[in-house]
Amino acid sequence: MLRVENLSKEFHSGRGKNAKTVQAVKNLSFQCKPGEIYGLLGPNGAGKTTTLRCLSTLIKPTSGNAWIDQFNVLDHGQMFRSKIGFLTSDMKLDGYFSPDYMMNWFGRLNKMQDSEIEQRKEKLFVDLKMTDFIHKKIDELSSGMKQKTAVAISLIHDPDVIIFDEPTNGLDIVTSKSVTDFLVSRAESGKIVILSTHNMTIAEKLCDRFGILVEGELKEEGTLSGIIQGSDWDNLEDVFFSYIMPDSTVGGEHV
């Protein structure tokens, strides 16, 4: 179980008269249970990536906390990280090495035995259809191959919670499908998947529940049917536009 409670994050810039505070995330709370795919949606600057970065322990929340079982981001950073597989579009791999070498390296850093790494690699390479390029240098791979490699590496230690920010960004339709199918299979095997995406079609197709984040605040949360029930909204796109463009005729109104 993943539990996020009253998570807030402020960024400060400038000094003296030029001092500025931006509240990127405001008292965000949500929960996810095993086997669930949770979609964190919102326009640019809504605070999705900041939330995910807090959950990855890359940055510290200003207040609030998040738990996976008994471990929380503030007090048990290393243990919390052992439970998550995290990937954002701005995270890159060292292009000098091959996917195979990097899988071994990250496996060892995740305290895995060599035999465990071999088994895990074999499964991930097959599931993600990577066997043709595992010994090539990452620099020589296409962006789809690189993305598959990054996905495989972030999941080498078989984490309980998978947190991906725009995992299909820039991928062709075939690679995109293999990544999303893989995520569905992970959820079916009991993992929690948290996805942040702009692609409403993918979100509707994949996610069991959604959280719609606007200016750092969680505006809507629940299943698609729960959110649109009793409103003028027909789909996720209507819900999304009603928050980011309230005067537009595209979205309806929540009754």
Partner: peptide
């Protein structure tokens, strides 16, 4: 260099102190 290339974050989100 790792910051610049975006490879450092990949290392930081693993179970290494």
């Amino acid at each position: 260099g790792e910051k610049e290339r975006g490879t450092l974050a990949m290392l930081l989100v693993n179970q290494v102190s």
